[in-house]
Structures are given as structure tokens and as C-alpha cells.
Amino acid sequence: MERRSFLRAVTAGTGAVAVTGGLWHAAATPAAAAAADSPYGPLRAPDAHGLALPEGFTGRVVARSTRPVGGITWHGAPDGGACFADGDGWIYVSNSELPLIGGASAIRFGPDGSVTAARRILTGTNLNCAGGATPWHTWLSCEETYRGRVYETDPYGNRSASSYAAMGRFKHEAAACDTDRRVVYLTEDEDDGCFYRFTPAAWGAWGALSEGRLDVLCDAGGGAVAWREVPDPDAPWPWEQTRTQVDEALHFDGGEGCYYSPQAGVCYFTTKGDNRVWAYDAGAHTLAVVYDADEPLGTVDNITGRAGGDLYVAEDGGNMEINIITPTGTVAPVVRVDGHPESEITGPAFSPDGSRLYFSSQRGESGFVAGTDGVTYEIHGPFRA
């Protein structure tokens, strides 16, 4: 069944797509999340860094590609990211979406927000786009390339990275850990990509994801969805690709960001080809669309969220904004980067205390595709819990 036909089947007879998780408090039509006044108020004029922010928020630059930070040279094309607690400070990890030399780096911040150190935690990989944090405080760095791998990396620099073929060989984008069901959801950046679930043989420690079962989300008929096992996640080239191994698999137009809300039991993911934010309710086994519009949020990409239910979605180009989507359906910009018309916003992640939001402009003012002009920012302010 084609994607749009499937969506019609989901909504048939009801006129609505129901998200049954606790985060979204009512049924929502595909376009129910729409532009409205931001809970933070309107954006002010851009500051000295080109950041347009609401009243009460401040921004700064923490790193620039090819320039020193914390004892290393910050990587080009900064992409997916996450934050990790570290004693009285915290760490922000960022991927590098460069070919052949991609990898990932980590910046350590002290309790006052000052940069105290930085390190490379992954080197020699290819087009590391997004990824996801694990509950045991490691970073899954995903290669967005043909037959790409997932690498487990150590933000604290104590272990060398490991790759896991069991998680599939495809154009990986993002990963999100479901701590309730002990699975990892994975997106695929193809115009006919799939949405996957990896169930490891073990859970809770470094290397636990080295073995397990990879499933793909499928049409189960009558608007229902179900998981089916991928027969050979590590099929050797040029054998059948991962996304074509199961006939019933649902296909999505350019899978991007992925975020699991433990409060709602819902995994949210974005598809850039049709500019949608999807919600997979893991308990009810239902799939819904919670944003399906062109404005104010365009070219959806990386996504993160807060315990109170707010989602934060970054734009791949568009107006160069991060937009909030609230549980009541409000969509509004929280930050805009001015003067970077050929770039994209990547890697949104909150500090452990929730007061700081980190992200990057991947190609900066120049828009140079080699990513040597990337800028990594920090926004500090009264974010909602």
C-alpha cells in the first residue's frame, strides 16, 4: 500500500488521526498542528550572532568549523547532536557530515557553561548525519551513505567506537531508544526509505547493541501497522537492499530526525520529502501524522523534545528556524538564524538541566558544501520543562 493510501486508510471513517499516547491530549487531523502565537512570544531582531530569539533568551557561538575549541579543531559540517551529564558539567556531542573523514566530536562544559575541554570520539567514517543517545550514556552515530553503519561512541573518551552490522546496512539517519520496550527506532534517508525497530539481545551497557533483531514497520491491513523481521540486515553488496526485503514494508519520503518520548510512549520522526512529523504509538501500534503543512515549519529535519510534551523541530534550510510544536498543536519559531541562506539547522539538544539548547548551522554564512563554515550555537533561557 502506498503511503498516502495508507494515511487515508488510517483516517477513514473518523476524519481524524488519533494519537493515543499521553503527550497529545486529543485526536489530531493531519494538519491540526498549525501556526499560532509562541508560548515564548515573538522573535526579536537578530543579535550580533544573527540569532533572532524571544525576549529573555540569549545566544552565543561555542564552536566554528576549522577553528580551535577546547584543544581540538572543530569538525566541518556539524550535524546530529546530544547532551550528556558529566559531573558538575555536561557534554555536547556533534556528528560531522563530511565524506570519508566524518566522525564525531564532543565539547565539555563546566558548571558555569564555559568550555573546559573537547575531544574527537569517532574518526574515519563517512557522512555521519544524525544519531541518538542511549540510556547508558553513549552516542549512536549514523552514517548517511549507501550501506552505512551505526557506530556506538563514548562521549567521555574512555572507549574506542564500535560498529554494529546487526542494526542494518543502509542510509542511516537518526536513532531513538525506547527504554520501555528496550528497542531502538531508526530512520532511513531515502525517498522510499523505511522506519525500523532494532531489538538487541541485551540492554543497558556498552556493546549491548552488537546482536539482535531488525524489524521494519509494515502495513497490516485496515489501517493497522505491524513489525516484520528483515531477513538479512547485513546482506552483502550487491544483494537486496534492506528496505526492499519485506514486501509489506511502509515507505517514507526521506526519513530524518527521530525522538522517543517516554512520557507518551510515542516515537516521533520526520520526513523531509513531504514535510511531515509522524507519531508511532508504541503501545497502541498506531501511526499518525501530527504535522502536515508548509508553514510555518518547512523542510523538517532533526527533532528533539521535552518531558512536558513540547517538540522542537529544526529546518533543513527553509527560514533556518527551530520551531516548537506544543501538545495543543501550536507551531511557532523559537530561534531563527539570519544570514545563512544556503545552510541547514542541525543537532538540537538540551543540556541536562534543560536551560540551554545547542544546535548548529551546518554550512554557515558561505553555504559551502564542504561544511568548513559550520557554526555551533548555545541558546540560554527559560525553556518550558
Rank of each mutant, 00 (worst) to 15 (best):
residue 220 A to P: 00
residue 164 Y to T: 01
residue 54 P to Q: 01
residue 340 H to D: 14
residue 156 Y to K: 02
residue 320 M to S: 09
residue 154 D to K: 11
residue 59 G to F: 09
residue 379 I to A: 10
residue 246 V to G: 05
residue 181 R to D: 08
residue 108 R to K: 05
residue 375 V to G: 02
residue 155 P to N: 06
residue 258 C to G: 03
residue 149 R to Y: 07
residue 363 R to V: 09
residue 138 T to C: 01
residue 106 A to W: 07
residue 17 V to N: 09
residue 117 A to Y: 06
residue 319 N to P: 01
residue 208 A to V: 01
residue 218 C to Q: 04
residue 270 T to C: 15
residue 198 F to K: 00
residue 132 G to S: 01
residue 77 A to D: 09
residue 261 S to K: 13
residue 136 W to C: 00
residue 293 A to D: 14
residue 380 H to L: 06
residue 184 V to N: 05
residue 66 T to V: 13
residue 354 G to D: 05
residue 72 I to Q: 06
residue 184 V to I: 14
residue 383 F to I: 05
residue 333 P to V: 08
residue 143 E to K: 07
residue 46 P to W: 12
residue 76 G to D: 13
residue 371 G to F: 04
residue 74 W to K: 06
residue 294 D to M: 07
residue 215 D to N: 04
residue 176 A to F: 04
residue 271 T to G: 09
residue 30 P to E: 13
residue 282 A to S: 15
residue 46 P to K: 08
residue 225 V to G: 04
residue 374 G to C: 03
residue 287 L to Q: 08
residue 289 V to R: 04
residue 47 D to N: 12
residue 115 V to Q: 11
residue 26 A to T: 12
residue 93 V to K: 05
residue 364 G to K: 13
residue 93 V to N: 08
residue 64 R to Q: 15
residue 176 A to M: 03
residue 343 S to T: 14
residue 289 V to L: 11
